[in-house]
Design a protein around this nucleic acid. Structure first.
Lengths: 219, 219
DNA sequence: TAAAGTATGTTGAATTTTCAACAAAATGAG
DNA sequence: CTCATTTTGTTGAAAATTCAACATACTTTA
């Protein structure tokens, strides 16, 4: 675990937890670390959610797939970030998403009941972890509203421009990379891939954007 | 405040708080109660969010309105339920939604900093409130995934059927009322109102649903 | 109760999106 | 380096959505 100490220190779950107590605490929480290869399922859809996931290296993708195979990408999750925390904390009976590794990734899993329910050792960190979870879930809720802001637009063009403007704002520059290929961007924006490609070409011809693969510039 | 004790006891924010301490606690938290008339704005878009709202009577609607006036309805909130809690807890600099009273409604507002930061009186309830907030925000996150599940469908028909099936499941019956009129349902599903009306008629002719105003039956 | 205002359903035209198919470009494996 | 696979862009036809306009039904209030 020591190997990932730097990442864990940045993890919002461990905000205001002393570095010295972190490793001890992880043992107490029964945290495990596993390697998942590219395209492997970290958490399968349908099962009850018992664990909070933390990406230590690589990245994972949170997908919602319906009965006839339509995929919606909810988010990519990067080192130091959590996933499945809302469902775990709500003790959801069924996880409606699937979590897939984008690349070989080390993932830490922590049984959420070890966080929420005070242990016999009477550790003092539970309150801080619960506070941190509350903050983290609240912040993540805000990113969902942003997804709704994008996908509630009625046309491919507007969805794309709303998304690109958000990314530019986030990056702080008019030039930035997006974390999706075309199909993934289409699945995030909830539009048809070929129509999205056509719209990108159109915006380029109109001189509104410049783009090359997943690199974009707003003119 | 006594008048609303029964509602407050059901509010998830006060789970596991003794009835006897509730009123004292509300005073300590500086809770206020105000009446908002129909169509009045309870929380305006754009301002920093300092308060958590609790509906005591009536109901409010959470809307997202973009620069060119397109409205997306996020949810209706009913007595005993919270609103704006995620933005307040995340200490968001700007509230991207607007909260409007659907009818004359009594609303309690609590400054979230009074909950998150221990007061001088050293009240013992902060930890419980933070835990309750965490649970509440986690549960609400799940309802957002349900909204995404509905709106990510590509056609009006599929959005509508997904929504109706969810409502039926929630009601526990194939016959149920929905909390929206046509325009509101269209704004929730993120589709055109007239197209939605046409689709409802079509489903009725095909014998898939029966409906009258906001009363629906899945056949 | 009547009148005004609001909500709903219907229609057809214009616009968009989706779908399918394919070629070109890029990537990855051996 | 070459071949196989995946990704991307392009196109046209089919299907669906949006938009505008209007008639009817329903609500509200004066």
């Amino acid at each position: 675990m020591k190997k990932y100490l730097e990442i864990l220190k940045k993890c919002p779950l461990f905000f205001e937890i002393e570095e010295e107590s972190l490793l001890r605490m992880l043992t107490c929480l029964g945290a495990t670390i596993d390697l998942y290869d590219k395209k492997y399922t970290v958490m399968p859809e349908g099962k009850p959610v018992k664990h909070i996931g933390i990406v230590l290296s690589g990245s994972v993708q949170i997908n919602q797939v319906d009965y006839d195979g339509n995929r919606t990408i909810i988010a990519n999750v990067y080192p130091g970030e959590l996933f499945a925390e809302a469902f775990a904390c709500a003790e959801a009976k069924s996880f409606p998403l699937s979590v897939i590794a984008n690349e070989p990734s080390y993932i830490m899993l922590i049984d959420v009941s070890h966080i929420l329910h005070t242990c016999n050792n009477n550790c003092g960190f539970h309150q801080q972890l619960i506070f941190n979870l509350m903050k983290d879930i609240a912040l993540k809720t805000i990113t969902f509203y942003q997804k709704i802001e994008v996908t509630s637009k009625r046309s491919t063009r507007e969805k794309l421009l709303t998304y690109l403007n958000m990314q530019a704002k986030k990056a702080g520059y008019r030039t930035f990379d997006i974390p999706f290929n075309r199909q993934e961007l289409a699945d995030f924006l909830e539009v048809d891939r070929s129509g999205l490609s056509a719209e990108i070409s159109k915006l380029r011809k109109e001189g509104i954007i410049e783009s090359n693969k997943n690199h974009f510039t707003l003119i």
